[in-house]
Each structure stands twice: as structure tokens, then as C-alpha cells.
Design a protein around this nucleic acid. Structure first.
Lengths: 244, 244
DNA sequence: TCACAAATCTGGTATAGTCCAGTTAAGCGA
DNA sequence: TCGCTTAACTGGACTATACCAGATTTGTGA
């Protein structure tokens, strides 16, 4: 009854959402700024903490804010634009947009192909595959974790390489592989378990799963990649000429 | 302490999530089936209702289940695959996948161009534009609402046409327009207000916003379309040859 | 048999706490 | 001034209720 967070007819949490969204849009809360704590918002709005959190979840779902566990809620930086029809690696297209990309290798190992993997690689279940786990950040903020599977036949010594840069560059330069076709699939998902931990987000945070397969001229699969993105870090853009 | 919904070390709601996800995967809960009510799950799992809902929200975020307001939670049907590089309209690609598409016109009117609209159409703010609001469903379940803006110069009598089918067909057949380029942008969003109401979902449900602009050979904008999708109804797939 | 009214069930919203485990900042001693 | 300990703070998880309004079902009367 005392501030902007009531007014409207709808639920309280939506009114608080609108209020905060307005402050972000007007710049009263700048990019990267920390919002007042949940308990402060609670006092300010007169709502219960659960209601305040409801409003914050909403803003999070829209990509306007994000949380840092036990630290606070922050205004999200703008997303990077990802164009699946362009064959540029993460390091390239993030830098192109004036942001600072970094890559960190979390692990590299040989794993046995699961049933799903085997179907993709056209091999038997249990066949050894190289698995590369990486975490990538933009301006120091982790935005995705990925697992890339590569057939050892294609790159026998891959695990000995430095893989904190562009994997594609390694495959092309060291092994002479040429990717000519890309198959990209996207769907919303929830970030849970290892993925959530690696990104420093709460389990259950919404995300975007990008599954990418690249093939060479002989239609041999080169990379099979699962990327788990923070949903607010990416915007997909496709520009195409009509083919009919 | 009495059923599968405890066990693990993590939070209770994740354990319950895993339990339900398992039942869906195994087919114990079939597509379209209704889950037990929140209060029943509460009794079955021993958790508080808020905790049960937390698990349900998680599954919803992953696209496994959806809710019908004040009716219950249901297992989601499989998503349709949307390929932005193919120039096929909704009616076409949904039918292609063996599903039944329907379109319903919610309204058609002339509106004044907003600042954003004017930038896209290259016209002055306030210039009249045709706005078409539609709701589209798959197998009877509403999956998206859209607003399409069209320049009256291109299709002067558009508002008199029947628009429950393919708008593109009308523009092509009646006005001789030929789309040669498409610009598609996607980002996760929250479905709120009118959109949420039109889709019959709770305000705040996660969704996917698809913004589409189509141009003709003269690079004149033909359609400017905002599609608000239920996030679990769509999967984006892009297949491209490398161009570098 | 059919139409309508009432009781019941369902999710939606909201309150008011509790306890926990990391983060962060304050304070103090060397 | 620097480094460490400690206290305060923050979000995460959870419980236990309560009331509402729309959806659904049940029951009843015509």
C-alpha cells in the first residue's frame, strides 16, 4: 500500500514484476547491478517473501535478471546473438560482438558409446569415444557447459591437445577435417545436477539445450555436441533465403 | 520415507521430479495422461504442497508436462519441429508431421505504428498498419498466439480476406507478393497477460518468442510477426551447409 | 432423458514462519 | 597495512496453512 508494487488488479507478484521490470528498462537498475535483497523487497512491497520470489522467478524466466547463489539477484547483461547458419565458433562470434569469451576444459576422457551415441555415430554400443567437457564464459560469467563427442578414428591424439580454444581449429589444422554440414537442434530445458553446479546456478534454472552435429564431405560425423546454455545468455537468429 | 520420491541426497523436489520423470519415460504416465493432483502427490510423497509444486514446475520447464488451469497437470505431447530455414507455413509443417493444425483469428484491425514498428517498416510513427491476431493449435491444444503486422500498401484489402489459413498463400495468390528472405529471431520469454490468457496458461509460464520478418526481392518488408509459443510445443531445428 | 443447480476438486495466490549453508563484510590482532 | 576470524546477510529449501475462482462432477428436479 505504500509503493509502486501494488496498484494493478492482477496478482501482487505480477505488479512487483512490472515495477522491477520498469526500473530495469528505465536504467534505474543498470546492467550488472544488484537488486535489493529478497527480504528488503519484502519490506518495501509489503508482500511475503514467497510472493517476492515469485516475481523474481518471473523476471528470471524472461531473462531480465539472474541470481548468484547466496549472493543476490543481478540485472542480466545483454544476450549474445547465435546464428546457427554461420559456421563460426563460440570464441569467434562472441568476440565479434565486443564481448570477452573464455573457455575452460573441465575434463577429457574416453567414454563408452551409449545407445543414443551409437545411433549417431553409426557404431556399436560401448565403442570408445572421446568426450570433452568444457565450460565457456562471456565477460567472466559462465554461460554454457558442453560435452563434445568425437570419434577417436578421426582425431587419434585429440586428448593430448590443448582444447581451451577452438576445437574446430584443432580438428581442421591438425587432422585436416573439413566440416561441410551442420545439424543444430534447440529446445528449452531445465539446468540440473552437474550442469547447474558447473554454471553456478540453482538446479532447475531454465536453460536452452543446443545439440549440434557436424559432418564432413563424406557425411561422416565429426562432432556431436550438447551445449547447455543459461537461457538468458543467448539469442538465436537465423537469416535465410527462401528455398522452395 | 515411504515411496520413491525421497531417496537421493539432493533437495526433495528434485527427487520427486526424477520419480515423475521416470514414470513418464517408462510410459507409466502416457502422453496426455493426467498426473495425480498436487494434494495427492503431497500425501504420496510426504512433502508440503509447495515442494510438490516445485517439482512440477521443474518438469514443466523441461517440457515434460503442462498444466490446464484448475484442471490438472498433463503429460506433454511431443513437440513439433520447426525449421526456420524452410519456408513452410505453420499449417504445412504441422500437417507434415502428422498432427492437426488449426488457426483461429482473434482479431484484425488497423493500428498505428509504434516506434519499434516504424523502425522495421521504415515509416513514420503512427502510420496505419494492419494487425492480425491469431491463435494456432495442434491437435486441439493451443500452442501459440501471434500478431502479424502488414503494410496496407502491400495488401490494401487484407482485412476483408479469410485469414484462418495461410496468410502467405493470401499474400502470394491475391497480391502477387513473393517472399525471398526471412529473418527469424528466437528467445525465451515468460507468457503473461493477454498472451497467457489466450493460450489458457498461467501468467508467467515459460514460452518462446519467435520474431519473424519476411522480405520480398526489393527488400521490402512483407510480414512482421511476433509468435508467442508454449515452450514445450516447439523444437527448433536448423540444417545448414557451411559457408565460410 | 435432459437441463440445471449445488457440492467438490483443482490449481493459483498468498502468508508466516523455520533452518541451512555459502557469501560477504566487519572487525580485530599481528 | 595485511591477513584471518567471525558475525551478519543472502538465497535455497521446506513446512503448514488459508482462501479464491474456475473446472468438474454429482445430484436433483422437470
Amino acid at each position: 500500500m505504500q509503493n509502486a508494487a501494488d496498484a494493478g488488479p492482477g496478482p501482487h507478484y505480477l505488479a512487483l514484476r512490472d515495477h522491477l521490470a520498469g526500473e530495469i528498462a528505465q536504467g534505474a537498475l543498470a546492467v550488472g547491478a544488484r537488486l535489493p535483497s529478497e527480504r528488503q523487497l519484502q519490506l518495501g512491497s509489503g508482500a511475503a517473501r514467497g510472493t517476492v520470489r515469485e516475481a523474481l522467478f518471473q523476471l528470471e524466466a524472461e531473462g531480465l535478471i539472474y541470481r548468484r547463489d547466496r549472493s543476490g539477484w543481478y540485472v542480466s547483461p545483454p544476450p549474445v546473438v547465435y546464428d546457427p547458419t554461420r559456421w563460426a565458433g563460440f570464441m569467434a562470434y562472441v568476440a565479434e560482438q565486443g564481448r570477452v569469451p573464455t573457455t575452460e576444459t573441465l575434463g577429457k576422457q574416453s567414454v563408452a558409446a551409449s545407445a543414443a551415441d551409437a545411433a549417431v555415430f553409426g557404431c556399436a554400443i560401448g565403442t570408445p569415444l572421446f568426450a570433452l567437457d568444457r565450460r565457456r564464459a562471456i565477460d567472466g560469467r559462465p554461460v554454457l557447459v558442453e560435452r563434445i563427442l568425437v570419434d577417436p578414428v578421426i582425431a587419434p591424439d585429440l586428448l593430448d591437445e590443448g582444447l581451451d580454444g577452438s576445437l574446430t581449429a584443432v580438428l581442421t589444422g591438425r587432422y585436416g577435417v573439413r566440416v561441410v554440414r551442420n545439424h543444430v537442434e534447440m529446445r528449452p530445458c531445465a539446468l540440473i545436477k552437474d550442469v547447474a553446479r558447473a554454471l553456478g546456478v540453482a538446479s532447475g534454472t531454465p536453460g536452452l539445450l543446443v545439440v549440434r552435429r557436424s559432418f564432413d564431405a563424406g557425411d561422416r560425423i565429426i562432432e556431436y555436441d550438447h551445449e547447455y546454455w543459461r537461457h538468458d545468455a543467448i539469442r538465436v537468429l537465423v537469416e535465410v533465403r527462401t528455398r522452395d
